[in-house]
Structure formats: C-alpha cells, structure tokens
Design a binder for these strands. Structure first.
Lengths: 217, 217, 217, 217
DNA sequence: CATGAATGAGCCTTCATTCAT
DNA sequence: AATGAATGAAGGCTCATTCAT
C-alpha cells in the first residue's frame, strides 16, 4: 500500500476513467519533458522517466508503446502549443509587412526552446517509426489552420511555414546549448561560429519574407 | 561524388607505410560511409563497420580511438571535400550578383548528400565529445579560406557561410530520405510537406543574399 | 560448511518480497561460489555466473552493481560466517592456554577453505574499489566482537586476530589447491615445499600465542 | 633506420650473441619491474612494457613466451637477489639466538618490496601455468642453499624458510600500498587495521623462532 | 490498472598473441 | 632479430521491453 503522496499533487492510485488516463498520460509527458531539458534523448532512460513520474516502468508502456512514441507525443504536444501561441499572436496583431510578420514569428518562438530541441530529434531518432506519418499529418493540419492567418495567399503561406520549420531546425542545430557548444564561448578564436538563435532566425525570416514580396509583385 | 566501386580490390595484408595506412584509414571511412547511408548512427555498430571493411574489430581502433572519432573524421572529410569543391566553383565562375552566388552555392551542394546527412549527426550525437572542438576549429578555418572568395566584405561573407550551414541542416532535416519520409510520397494529402532540397535551399539563399544587398546599400 | 545441494530446486519466477529477493541474492552468491572454486576471479565472467544461476546476465546487476561488489559480498558473507563459527567455539570451550586458543582457531578454519581463498582476492583484485572501505569496516567490527572472547587484553586480542588474518592468507597462498600446486605431489624432489595448511597454521599460532605469553609476563 | 639513441644507454639494434640477448632480456625485465611498481599486473599491458624498453611488442615474445612467463621470470630474479642478499647477511653476521635470526631476516626484507609484491601475484595469476613447476624447483634450490647457513638442523631450517615465505606473503597482503589501503589512514576508526610490515613480520618471526627453540630443547 | 523483476541482445572497447614483412 | 599491424575472443555493463503477479 505505497503512499502516493510523494508527488506535487495527490493523485489517484489508478487511472480509471478515460479522463484520468488522459491526465496520467499528461503527467508522463510532463516528466519526460522535465528530464529532456537536461539530458539528451539517448541518455534518457525510461527508468528515469518512470522515476520522475513516480510510476513503475511497466506503467509507461500502458500509455506509450515505445520510447519513441512517447517522445513523438511530446513533440506533438509542443508543436500544438506553439501553433496555438502563434495563432493567438497573429490574431491579435494582424501583421502586414514582411518585417512585422518576421518579427512576430521570431517572437513566437521565444520560450519554445523545448519544442525546437525536440524537433531536432525527429531526423535522427524519431523519424524511423511509422508513427511519424501520423505526426506529419498532424503538423500539416496545424499548418493549414495557421496559413490563412498570414497575409499571404494560401500556398505562399504554407511555404512560409515550411521555411520557418527548416530555419528553426537549422538555427537550433547551430545554437543548441550542448556542453561542447558552451565551451565555444571560452575560445575567442571560435567567436565567428557563435551565433544567437533569435537574431539569426529573425534575419532569415526577414530575408525570406521580403524576398517573397519582391517576387510576387 | 565518390565512386562506389570499392569492393574486393586486392589489398596488402598489412598497411606498413604511412601511405598504406592512410589508404586503409580511407577504406574504413569509406565502409562506414557506405553503411551510414542506410543505417542511423546509433544502430551502426563498430562490428558492422569492421565486417564491411573486412577487418577485425580491433583493427578499427588502430585507426580511430572511438566510434565518435571515426564519424567525426568522416564528417570532417566530407566538409573539406565540399569546401574544396565550392572554392573551385567560386574561383571558376566568380559570381557577382546575389542570384549568381545563391545558384552557385546551391549547385555546389549537389552530390553532397552524404555530407548533409552527416551534418545532422553533429547536434545529436557527436557534439558532446571534446573532439568536437577541434572539428569546429577546422570548420572555421575552412570558412575563413572561402570567405574572401565571396563578393562580400569578410564579415558578411562569414555570415553568409554560417547561414548556409544552418539552411543546409534545416532543409536536409526536412528532406532526409528516411523510410518514413519516403512513404510521404504515397500520401497525396501530405503533398504540401514534400519539398525539394535544392529548390528550397536555393530560394532561401536567394532571399538571404538579396536581402543583404538591400540592407547594405 | 554450507550444503552444496543447491540444484534445480523449483524457484519462483520472480522474487517479489524482500525475503524472496534475499533468497535470490543468495542463489547468485552461491552460484558464484560454486564457480569460484574451480575458476580464478579474472577468468570468471558474469555471463558464467548468470548461466550457473540460470538467470539472465542483466538480472545479476539487479542484485549487485558490479562484479567486484558481487565477490566482495561473497567474501563478506564468508567472513561473517567464519567469525560466527569462531565465536561459538570460543563461547563453548572458553580456551585459556595459548595452545588451547591456537588449536581452537586452527580448528575453526577447518571447512572454511572458500573464505580463505576468497581472502586472497582482496589484495590483487578487490582492494581497489571504494567498496573495500566498507568491507574493512565490517571486518573490523567483526573482530571487535570477537576480541573480548579471547583470554587476552583487548588490544592484544585484536592483534592476535590481525595476525590470524595474515597467517591465514600466507598459508593459504602456499597451500592453495591450484592445478600447478597439485602437480607438486607428483614430484618427490619438491616435497619440502608441500605443506599442510592446518598443521603449519597451527604451529604459527602456537608460536605466536606462546610468545605473547612470554612477553607479557 | 630508426635511431636507437632514445634510451639511457646506447644499445645494439640487434642482439646477436647469446650475451647480448641475455642483456636484452634483462632490459625487458627491468622495464617490467619499473612499471610494476606503480601499476597492478592486470592493468599492465605488454604494450606498455614494450614502450618502456623501447622495443616492439613482438620482440618481447622473442624473449618470453607469454606475459605470465615474463613476470614469473621477474619474480624469479627477485627471489634470487633476495636470497643472495640474505646469504650475505647470514655469512657476515652468523646470528645465533632466535631474536638475532629474526632480526636479520626482517632486515633482509627491507628494500625488497618489489619481491614481496611479486610474490602475491603467484597465487592469483601466475600459479596457473606449468612454468610454475620450474619456478618452484628454483625456489627450492635457493632455499636449500640457504638452509645450512641458519643455526638450525637442515629440516628445521627449511621449515623456517617456508614459514618466512608464508609470513612474508601474509603481511605483505595486509600491508600492500594500494590506493584503497592508503585511504585507511584517513579513517581513524579503522586504525586497528593499519599495521607496519616490518614490525609485525619481526614479531611473527621472533615468535616462531623462539617457539622452535622451546620445542627442540 | 499497476508493478518492477527479469530478460537478453547488443554495445564499445581492450589486449595478449600472431605473423607478414 | 625486430617490427608493429592485425587479430578476435572476451569482458563488463545497459536498457527498452515483457510478463508474472
């Protein structure tokens, strides 16, 4: 009869209703996320995740069939959150000029490092599974919901979103705060390689959107 | 575009001279590369590489201290090859306009898929070791040798090269020919997510370089 | 003199309760011991131990963090058993004269070859880890519990126990039943080197204890 | 044509005559010894030894068939040296009383830590080979040469020498300067386990020899 | 639904020894 | 005699996943 009080919130010992199960699923995701911010995927064991949620290892497999699926779900969640955030900003500000749009997108990414890092996993690790297909479908539908909010024709808007994705991955890749990357700061001769995500991302977006402007007219 | 003919060529039983050793080192690299095109880093064991070169496992460790070093060496090799290729193109064509430069860079990447894929490894896997530092230094010096060949002030040129890196990673990431990615082609509804590396890369570069033009003047 | 009957007794598939886990731990220890009698530590793989207990390799690591820890635990167990045995004998017989004490200690070692052999490991192999410290502490406290049972002042008693340790190791070393040692028996010219553990141990102890007697008075 | 000047002494590139070969053999032994004082047997690779003598790995195998043989030869050498030393002392001082003999033997061991440590190897590592038999023969004949120099009947003298062996091993075992052993010094509660080789060895010998005196008369 | 003991394939790496030169 | 590249068995250990309870 182990007490379940050790978590932040009291929690039913068993998740019975579908709602409770959803909550539990969320708990797991949240735990994985917490660990993920400090530990690379390969070094992050299901055991650790289990410990973090204070569930048994086996329980995780009741909610996710594989480690891969778990992280894909996490990425999915983050994607959704970010798109929602982006939509809100777009609806509020209704940006018109390329620079306004670029700035807004850049800003929308602030605070979403977790998502950006997760995105990198896709290629190297997560991409292999067939779950990826579902994931893509989801991404697509998120993009489709956002596209109309951009001051561009649908196709252009979609393209902008795909470019945003690529840029985000690219800059995140060069910017990722790995231990090795941090040591760069102590080697002045390597300065030219040290870049700031937000600044470069913004520049890339401005360049892109202004260019689109030019081309269209 | 290395020839893929490396098969059962007769080979000295022992690499004695420094030259032979270099050749053997190359053989290993080549084998690793061959496997790498079909198997992700994490699933690629030294055992497999050994089998592929037809050498004993231990022999690999005569040429590379760790698995990581082997793959870093591979990436390094490809980077160098690409920069050399790029330099040649730049020297030959001496591009002036933004579009000329963009096209040239885009073209230079053709046939260097291997490098592009390898680049993605950096973030997730290789970045951790201290070897990474050396690698960075090398990349930097390659960039520094290329920068003067671009029709831009040195700092701008360097920035262009860093952007190229980011774009390359970003688009490669979205374009990578993983099994999962290939299935995309059979799902017409996912069409909008299917993009062509070369085309998008080119567009990104054009956008960037034209934008720089604008800003400077 | 533990029974060597542990064979294919039926066994729960999973050790759930702490008691069952203790039993399983014991099973592993027992298996290691069985192998140890015929194979030197360095040649004894965890794989073999696993096979011998009929458990998976990984399972061993659920009970012992490293190979070293496993063997240290084994030695620890044997030490404890021997000290317990010695204490019992001392309590029963209450030896007074040096020779009585020497005989009793000698007798106490009979049947504890396993412990004696394990002791030899300490120097060469186990000594390095930090676990060794704990082990030492344990040995010390065992000695401290035994010292008062000897008909000597505390400090002298402790010294006697330490000497016993040294003598035990020394004679075991010369007496060890290795294959090489056994061949000695077939070479009459080497006779003088063939000695009997019990006999020599006894003599050493008698010498020591009588000497102490002399010195004190 | 590599220069062979890098050693302390110039050395012929090839050992041709039997004498030269013996010298070379000695060089190897000396190198192994140097390393052995700081590195445990298991961690000491033939590679290191080769590097230390500035010979190729394969060359070692021209002089010793196995690693084991090399170390057995080393031990053999040390044994011989010590016995020689002991003989000299005995001849010079001609000790008569038990305490004089005990003190002399104790003193003779001073400075022969290397031998003492090597002795410990015997049981755990070296004992297995069939070379051990030869080694034993040698030890026996050394003892036989020394026995007459002791003020005891031949058989008693032999027995004393065997006891010396055992005691030496036993106390060395408890005294060995391993890292773990050194940490003992920082744990005052473990004080009782810290003993001094020379002091305890001396006591053991005195006890033994005085006891023999008693028994005989 | 939950548990966590058990699994076992698989990983990277080491190193005594061999053998072509 | 000397070299040192090549070998390959073996080792300890990890961890995603399964399954008995």
């Amino acid at each position: 009869m182990p007490s379940q009080m050790s978590g932040q919130v009291t929690r039913p010992a068993r998740a019975r209703s579908p709602e409770e199960k959803l909550v539990r699923r969320g708990d797991i995701l949240r735990a994985a996320e917490r660990l993920w911010t400090t530990t690379p995927y390969a070094d992050l064991s299901m055991n650790q995740v289990a410990r973090e949620v204070q569930l048994a290892k086996g329980t995780l497999y009741l909610y996710f069939e594989t480690k891969e699926e778990l992280f894909l779900a996490l990425l999915s969640e983050h994607y959704q959150a970010w798109f929602t955030h982006l939509n809100t900003l777009l609806d509020e500000r209704q940006p018109k000029t390329p620079d306004e749009v670029a700035d807004l997108i850049t800003e929308s990414l602030r605070g979403y490092e977790a998502m950006r890092r997760l995105q990198l996993l896709l290629g190297g690790v997560l991409e292999r599974s067939e779950l990826a297909l579902n994931f893509r479908r989801q991404v697509l539908s998120l993009m489709q919901a956002t596209a109309p909010r951009l001051p561009y024709p649908y196709d252009t808007a979609m393209r902008v979103l795909v470019h945003t994705d690529a840029l985000c991955v690219g800059w995140q890749h060069l910017t990722e705060e790995t231990p090795a990357h941090r040591t760069l700061l102590f080697h002045p001769e390597l300065r030219p390689l040290v870049v700031d995500f937000e600044q470069e991302m913004n520049m890339s977006l401005r360049a892109l959107l202004n260019y689109l402007q030019t081309q269209t007219s």
